[in-house]
């Protein structure tokens, strides 16, 4: 008797679930985020323009915007995020142990990280390239002129090994001093321990502000590497990976399709472009296919704007960093940012 009641209850429950939900692969991460009521996002410990807490303790930046957008996609509310600041050394352990749901922190995508750390790189939100900051008085303009110099770097970063490889390949003798934290490396450079500090050109634009006299230093324009960066998830939860990937793709697609935070509501009701209608949930049930609401991208765009809006506000011309779009421009406008179609 009891068994039969339980069976009947389960049957009713199964039948009344939303139609899309039945066919979904399990996503323990999404379930955990929903149960918790907020997203746990691993960010950089403090990098102006990318992830930086202001004097009121509010996080802002390009990488933080992505966390906010993802929270909006899941909850419809960009504030439902808790940020875990992570150093270069901590980041993998924090992600692997499940302390955060994803990393969105200036992390370069590399082969060995993907192959041995149990992590997935789901997309690219910033094409970074490594370069050097030097004193104006040193009168050097190219990395190759750094022969004999001492260079400060954050230990365990891609820059640490990239710099060693690059100088070794050119038979240049450079002393590399490896600090545990970016900030220690910068302050050692500032105090004269090193002739140069090396990091990504975007990171340097923000970190330069931490120097005592920023105008006495120049960032070289020649890049010695190509360091694509983007959000990182754990292995073993494909649907979560898809949610993170398509939220990023959605922001890029929105810019390409001309959907902005200002016109998103109007676009949703009046646009006759099929891809815009699918992206914004006017046609089809794309949100539900991932286990989200169909208005997921509307919420993302309302919260942080499309990719271009987010870029200009955080690292672009609307910010203190003032970076050009450069390669971080849409593929249709000569850049490298690309998204597969929403179809």
């Amino acid at each position: 008797m009891k068994t039969r009641v339980r069976f009947a209850a389960a049957f009713v429950a199964a039948m009344t679930l939303p139609a899309g939900a039945q066919s979904l692969a399990p996503s323990p991460t999404l379930d955990a985020v929903r149960a918790r009521g907020h997203l746990e996002c691993g960010v950089h410990i403090g990098l102006p323009g990318f992830s930086f807490a202001n004097d009121r303790g509010e996080w802002a930046g390009l990488d933080v915007d992505f966390c906010r957008g993802l929270a909006a996609a899941i909850f419809g509310d960009p504030t439902k995020v808790r940020y875990t600041p992570t150093t270069v050394q901590q980041r993998w352990a924090v992600l692997q142990s499940g302390q955060v749901d994803l990393l969105s922190r200036n992390t370069t995508i590399t082969f060995s990280r993907n192959a041995t750390l149990g992590v997935n790189f789901v997309g690219i939100n910033f094409y970074e390239g490594q370069t050097f900051i030097v004193r104006r008085a040193a009168r050097v303009t190219k990395p190759a002129e750094l022969d004999g110099a001492t260079v400060c770097v954050a230990a365990g970063s891609t820059e640490e090994r990239q710099a060693a490889d690059w100088f070794a390949e050119r038979n240049l003798k450079v002393t590399i001093i490896n600090f545990q934290r970016n900030d220690d490396a910068i302050s050692a450079y500032d105090s004269g321990r090193c002739d140069a500090y090396t990091a990504g050109v975007g990171a340097l634009a923000g970190q330069r502000a931490k120097l005592r006299a920023p105008n006495d230093h120049v960032v070289m324009t020649e890049l010695i590497s190509n360091d694509p960066q983007g959000p990182v998830t754990r292995w073993g939860d494909e649907r979560w990976q898809a949610i993170v990937r398509w939220t990023l793709n959605g922001m890029i697609a929105a810019e390409n399709l001309g959907v902005t935070s200002a016109n998103v509501d109007q676009m949703r009701t009046t646009s006759r472009n099929a891809e815009i209608r699918r992206l914004l949930g006017a046609d089809g049930n794309f949100g539900q296919m991932l286990g989200l609401g169909n208005d997921w991208m509307v919420n993302v765009i309302k919260a942080v704007g499309n990719y271009g809006e987010s870029y200009e506000r955080t690292v672009g011309r609307g910010s203190a960093l003032g970076l050009e779009r450069g390669v971080n421009q849409l593929w249709t406008k000569g850049g490298l940012l690309f998204t597969p179609p929403f179809q």
């Binding site: 050394q89 365990g156 090994r161 490896n178 545990q180 220690d184």
Partner: peptide, 23 residues
Amino acid sequence: AAIAYPEVVSLFMGSALVATGQA
């Protein structure tokens, strides 16, 4: 390790650990 003196914590538990991920 706090001031980049290359001793075992800084080199092995810092640089090598992040490079290999084998904590």
